[in-house]
Write a protein that binds this DNA or RNA. Structure first.
Lengths: 187, 187
DNA sequence: GGAAAGAGTGAGTGTATAGTCACTCTCATG
DNA sequence: CATGAGAGTGACTATACACTCACTCTTTCC
């Protein structure tokens, strides 16, 4: 493999662009409900070239999921930095707020739910667990909160996923209000 | 050649049997990852007859989801009846215990996660919301607990779904133990 | 100029699958 | 025992989709 110029190859630039398209498209349709052609169209390349960049649909989905968790971690970190004070409670609260803002367009949230639903695919399950490990570890270490508080943080995050996927916040009934009470709704 | 049964059933008897097959198969593969042929095979009828009983794949999925929530409600009710005492805390605890036992084989839990992931399909979203309404209302009324306690009950249920779908309880790492701490694991 | 490597694609292949339809078989009833 | 309603299916259609391959075009470097 002879060394080429110092300019980044187009493929290295393309990959994250296609991954970003994959995030959007898989978030919309899920793994089985999204085609390579959908992603290719969004990325404005041919389906054939998608397979030059990613060896299989599974690996493309994993790339999208990795990108998703990267954004979540960045957002949590940012949020924590902007906390009122650095007490565990304040940091956790700020992280929750940042997360609520991040998922306001539903994309990253839906992708996580779709990933959960195809976690039986080994590559997807591995990527999901890796992402959850990062989020959990980061939350614990950055906030310094107790295990119980971190567990509660994640549990209410999951409740938030349910509320958004099932569009519960749009329902003006008592049970729906009960479930979404206090869950921060993005502007 | 499969032998034709010499005893004909009636459609009214067949329907719930096929719905039960649909629960199992859709729980395994999700909506897009399961075929009518899969369900038909499990129910030991031809794919064509599935369409005589249910007009579309969507409606079959909805029938499976309805059956799922029916079982959940029955289980919660049973659990509540067996509570140590009838204080809200004891009843909620008993319901959580009953739910944990019910989903011990993963089937009903996975079906709910798959339903969440295709909630954009209107019929599925409607059925999911109806089921959640029933579960939330029943939990509130039967236990007499506060809104906050019921919300927490559902939130930790969702955390439970995450733990099971991602097989987090099998991981011997600190983040995994943190997430699954205190979540009741059925025998 | 020209060779080599890589970017990118058009045109397939093989397979799967939702849904249909014309048909046969069973059985309760008169 | 004849009939008709309903149980049940084999064979089909039409479409979609993951993945492949032979090919061209572009850039780089001598």
């Amino acid at each position: 493999m002879p060394e080429r110029s110092s300019i980044l190859s187009t493929a290295e630039v393309r990959k994250p662009v296609v991954a970003a398209s994959a995030v959007r498209e898989f978030a919309r349709g899920g793994f089985h409900g999204t085609t390579i052609a959908d992603v290719a169209r969004d990325a404005k390349i041919s389906p054939a070239y998608v397979f030059k960049l990613f060896p299989s649909k599974e690996r493309l989905f994993v790339a999208a999921l990795d990108e998703c968790f990267t954004q979540i971690l960045a957002s949590l970190s940012n949020g924590a930095d902007g906390a009122e004070d650095q007490s565990p409670e304040a940091v956790l609260f700020a992280m929750g707020d940042a997360y609520a803002r991040l998922i306001s367009d539903r994309t990253l949230l839906l992708l996580q739910v779709h990933a959960q639903s195809v976690a039986e695919i080994e590559e997807v399950g591995d990527a999901l667990r890796a992402g959850l490990a990062q989020v959990t570890n980061f939350t614990k270490e950055r906030s310094g909160a107790s295990d119980e508080a971190v567990q509660r943080f994640i549990a209410y995050g999951q409740l938030c996923h349910l509320i958004v996927t099932a569009r519960i916040e749009e329902i003006p009934e008592s049970w729906a209000l009960l479930l979404s009470a206090g869950i921060r709704h993005p502007a």
